[in-house]
Amino acid sequence: MNGNQIQGLIGMVLTLGILLLLVLPSAVGAVRERRIDRQLREAGKRAGREQDQKSSSRSTVPSTATWYADGRRSKKFVSS
């Protein structure tokens, strides 16, 4: 190998190294996102199964805060 070939090889290796340093964070982030998505999917499946088991026959009644807020919303004035 002569001097020009060695310089070309060094330049190519440095260019590929810089490219790798630029791409690596996004690749790590993508892998992390996929792992989090998989965990959320599994947790959703587990929550769905638990919800089926914990079904209650009692009906839900709105809280006092909900009744108060509904009353306040209906008294808004409309400017013409």
Rank of each mutant, 00 (worst) to 15 (best):
Met1Gln: 08
Met1Leu: 11
Met1Thr: 10
Asn2Phe: 06
Gly3Tyr: 11
Asn4Trp: 05
Gln5Pro: 03
Ile6Pro: 03
Gln7Met: 14
Ile10Gln: 15
Ile10Leu: 15
Gly11Trp: 04
Met12Trp: 06
Thr15Leu: 08
Leu21Pro: 00
Leu22Asp: 02
Leu22His: 01
Leu24Met: 13
Ala27His: 01
Ala27Gln: 07
Ala27Asn: 03
Val28Ile: 15
Gly29His: 02
Ala30Thr: 05
Val31Cys: 01
Val31Leu: 08
Glu33Arg: 11
Glu33His: 03
Arg35Lys: 15
Asp37Leu: 04
Arg41Met: 12
Arg41Trp: 04
Ala43Asp: 07
Ala43Leu: 14
Gly44His: 04
Lys45Trp: 12
Lys45Gly: 08
Lys45Thr: 13
Arg46Gln: 13
Ala47His: 08
Gly48Ala: 14
Gly48Asp: 07
Arg49His: 13
Glu50Thr: 12
Glu50Gly: 06
Glu50His: 13
Gln51Phe: 11
Asp52Pro: 00
Ser56Cys: 03
Arg58Asn: 06
Arg58Met: 03
Ser59Val: 00
Val61Ala: 01
Val61Met: 06
Val61Asn: 04
Ser63Pro: 02
Ser63Thr: 11
Ala65Ser: 13
Thr66Ala: 14
Trp67Arg: 13
Ala69Thr: 05
Gly71Pro: 02
Gly71Phe: 06
Arg73Val: 09
Arg73Pro: 01
Lys76Met: 04
